[in-house]
Amino acid sequence: MPTETISAAVKPVRRSRPQWPVPAGLILLSLIPVIFGALRLTELTSGAAVTPQNARFFASPVPVVTHIASVTVYSLLGAFQFVPSLRGRRGWHRIAGRILIPAGLLTALSGLWMSVFYPLPDGHTDVPLRLFFGAAMLLSIVLGLAAVRQRDFVRHSAWMTRAYAIALGAGTQAVVGLTWIILVGPTDVPTRAVLLGAGWVVNLAVAEYVIRGRARNAPRRATAPGRTVSRPSPAVPRRGE
């Protein structure tokens, strides 16, 4: 038996990594703000009692309804962009992107509007954080859109990952806040602002880890989803050279 055949026979077969744990985790994390958003919509449509905590939503419901609807679509559909087999399909990626980009822009813009114009029951301690990360999400989507128009798919993926991480901040903030209450106890206004920022920082740190992991495993030349890189064959020297 030829040596090449023996080598091929004993060569270990690499098992493909499971594709769904990460999207499933993202969907579970998204369900936290989605459920609370659904409860808020129910409150607005069922004629619930107006309290200091919800008076701003009854006074101006359009921004909060827009924010809940857009972030629900953005967070749930965006999780499927982390499935490698789907992300590699050019048709799926484009169709999903045409939904995700408007939804992400509405999420960021409505969040910024509420941060500026809604009177918050706890005062304005966390407004600078909301404005900073809302603007960062908006800028990330704009830069991601600009990158894909320039056919720079690596940079597009990086910016859209950052935008998604910021949008998912509410889920992480709920986990961080609940953990603090269990381990430390009730929070005051400054502590809640710190925990709010911590949720966004944790998500962005994970996003940067994912982005750098992709960069280490990426081919030398970035291509569109669904395309392969054709490497040139080595030149064969001519006779006499």
Rank of each mutant, 00 (worst) to 15 (best):
P2T: 12
P2D: 15
P12E: 13
V13Q: 15
R14A: 14
R15I: 06
R15Y: 05
S16T: 03
S16A: 15
W20K: 09
W20E: 14
V22Q: 02
L31G: 13
I35H: 12
L39W: 07
R40C: 09
L41K: 04
L41G: 04
L44K: 00
T45N: 03
S46Y: 04
A48D: 10
A48N: 06
A49G: 10
V64D: 07
T66V: 13
L76N: 13
G78L: 01
F80T: 15
P84R: 03
R89W: 08
R90F: 06
G91T: 09
W92E: 07
H93W: 08
A96W: 02
G97D: 05
P102I: 08
L105Y: 08
T107C: 10
D122P: 00
L129D: 06
L131D: 13
F132C: 06
F133C: 03
A136G: 08
A136W: 01
M137L: 11
L138S: 04
L139M: 13
L139G: 08
L143C: 04
L143M: 12
R151D: 11
S157E: 09
S157R: 07
A158F: 03
W159K: 01
T161A: 05
R162S: 07
G171T: 03
A174E: 09
V176N: 13
T179P: 04
W180H: 14
L183W: 10
P186N: 12
T187N: 10
V189L: 07
R192E: 15
A193G: 13
L195S: 05
V201D: 09
V201F: 10
V206R: 06
E208S: 07
Y209I: 12
V210W: 08
R212Q: 11
R214I: 00
A215S: 02
P232S: 10
S233Q: 14
P237S: 09
R239W: 12
